[in-house]
Design a protein around this nucleic acid. Structure first.
Lengths: 143, 143
DNA sequence: CTTTGACCTGTGAGTTGGTCACAGGTTTTA
DNA sequence: TAAAACCTGTGACCAACTCACAGGTCAAAG
């Protein structure tokens, strides 16, 4: 398969195929006549694997490591379980952060309903923001 | 105030002050003798404003625009309200996406409890991931 | 047989919001 | 007077692609 064929088969762009190849996740062979890269069924499996892993939150270096282990006949599954739990914890942290941001934004928005637009007076930029009270800063509960 | 003094006053790093200066958010004066940059109370206000706006999800270009409007004696508040609502919508999109990811991850994790680690056999990389069913792909509800 | 269009190649820059490193100049402290 | 702490500008780095460019290859259509 050539780049675009593989890309179509895995439902990604040719650019992504080329990028993953540069990153060492795929190992195409080369036709010395025209310098084209040719991918086989194994590459397709690797690419599909990589995409699924990405959707589950694995990074490219992690995926490269998993593929490398499998290449060397080691089961990557224990590592996968391990990394995955860390990722889940991280996702939950991000989620909490984003929820907090949303809460702050909703609160700010409702507070703004009652505030008029300020006219610039040289020492105020935008009261909506300047008079907004950051809960993380005002009463520091962190650490 | 010199760079570090301003940074300390706004609780950011000197690098951030320099970065914001390069980005045009701060406008220090210069001492021609030593080429140092000097910041005044207005810069401190701008910097604090920028940090609050960042916490509320505004991007640097947006903040630059807001500051620019205020510089020209236009009230940036209407724009702030406008951008803010878009940002809130975006945050809610990201939030939904992250929640979905978390759901998928939790489901995968519980499914994995019952699955043994595979031994590499040349046509499987890691069954945990390969046999995981992406809800977005399998039954496409999008669009 | 040539032209067009679709494909291929490698390289390098852009995205976001900083952070870090480097090499060298200045000012303050001991 | 020398070290410590600060200042300067420039450029690379992070993640995971995406896009652009300039040029080479190849299949089908004229």
């Amino acid at each position: 398969m050539k780049v675009k064929e593989l890309a179509t088969a895995a439902d990604v762009t040719p650019d992504t195929v080329r990028f993953y190849t540069r990153e060492g996740l795929l190992r195409p062979s080369r036709n010395p006549n025209n310098n084209y890269q040719y991918y086989d069924a194994e590459d397709l499996r690797r690419l599909r694997f990589a995409r699924k892993a990405r959707q589950l939150g694995f990074s490219l270096p992690e995926i490269r490591q998993i593929l490398g282990q499998a290449d060397e006949q080691h089961s990557p599954c224990p590592m996968v379980r391990d990394v995955f739990e860390q990722r889940l914890a991280e996702v939950e942290r991000e989620l909490a952060e984003l929820q907090q941001l949303r809460t702050r934004m909703v609160a700010a928005l409702s507070a703004w309903q009652e505030m008029p637009d300020g006219t610039p007076d040289g020492h105020t930029i935008c009261r909506l923001i300047e008079h907004w009270d950051d809960p993380a800063t005002s009463s520091n509960k962190e650490h």
